[in-house]
Design a binder for these strands. Structure first.
Length: 271
DNA sequence: ATTCTCACCTGCGGGC
DNA sequence: TGCCCGCAGGTGAGAA
């Protein structure tokens, strides 16, 4: 479900409220994608210092360790003062003296994993190959162009792989490629530097715009306070197969790349 | 090394 | 109304 904007909106929704809270316990439902990797009891008594993000992972820093939280395809996190009974899809609840942080995830592709720190092997395995943060100063045109020049894969799949730049998932990849006027099937190394520079700018713009809009709520995504996002209303191609392109009027087309739907406009994104 | 395919799991909407 | 199929915001593992 969530791409960078949804994860960031989630983070912004509870980071400050949970900061300084002390863990008093945890409860678990069905198994998630990976096991926690430690005895849940060792979390008790620790204080949450801050909540960060790396790509689509939320990093909940506890003294002496961290929780890596991934929302998978259908996950959402909620932080609330009052403890309500866990529903059938609530698979993890972190109880603190300031409220509880709960992961709701019907498909259970999400995960909550404990790491002792950034050098813990599990952290390294999950975060080690991630590319640059798109909203940071490390995301430069020169670096982006140099990296893409080496890849033969279709540009859309190069974006989704997350090894060049993180956080761009299916929705925002489609939207960014549309706005940059690049056909998603074009090999990355066949996209000219001018178009790549445009793509670089548009990725930042689309992601920032989506964060500002509270993310996209397609089915049931909501931020940590339960509010829905509304970026999806601004989507120019994603989910609009057969509908007229908002720019040129030609019907938006859909194709499959790596078992994911790609939406594009043949008029605005020429070969 | 890179690239492709599968797998994980549940729910929902469309077509018959 | 009810069933079956395809589809859904991600990504690691294993095969080719």
């Amino acid at each position: 479900m969530p791409e960078l904007p949804e994860v960031e909106v989630t983070r912004l929704g509870f980071a400050l409220r949970i900061q300084g809270a002390t863990v008093v316990g945890s409860s678990w439902g069905k198994p998630l994608r990976w096991p926690l990797g430690c005895d849940p009891g060792i979390l008790v008594g620790r204080t949450i210092s801050q909540v960060g993000r790396r790509g689509k992972y939320l990093l909940v820093y506890l003294d002496g360790g961290m929780l890596l939280v991934h929302l998978g395809m259908s996950g959402s996190l909620r932080f609330a003062a009052e403890l309500s009974p866990a529903g059938p899809h609530d698979h993890f609840t972190l109880l603190t003296d300031r409220g509880h942080l709960r992961l709701h995830d019907p498909r259970r592709f999400g995960a909550v994993v404990y790491a002792q720190g950034p050098d813990d092997p599990i952290a390294h395995k999950l975060l080690g190959r991630l590319g640059v943060e798109p909203l940071s100063d490390d995301f430069t045109i020169a670096g982006f162009v140099a990296h893409m020049r080496r890849l033969r894969a279709p540009i859309k799949q190069a974006l989704l792989a997350g090894e060049v730049v993180v956080g761009v998932g299916n929705i925002y990849a489609c939207e960014a490629l549309f706005q940059a006027g690049i056909r998603p099937t074009t090999p990355a190394n066949a996209v000219g530097p001018k178009r790549l520079a445009r793509l670089h700018a548009v990725i930042r713009q689309v992601l920032a715009q989506a964060v500002a809009a509270g993310g996209s709520t397609l089915r049931d995504f909501s931020g940590a306070d339960g509010s829905a996002g509304h970026f999806q209303a601004q989507a120019l191609v994603y989910g609009r197969e057969g509908q007229p392109c908002k720019q040129c009027g030609k019907p938006v087309q859909r194709l499959t790349q790596g078992q994911r739907s790609t939406y594009f406009c043949s008029g605005c994104q020429p070969r």
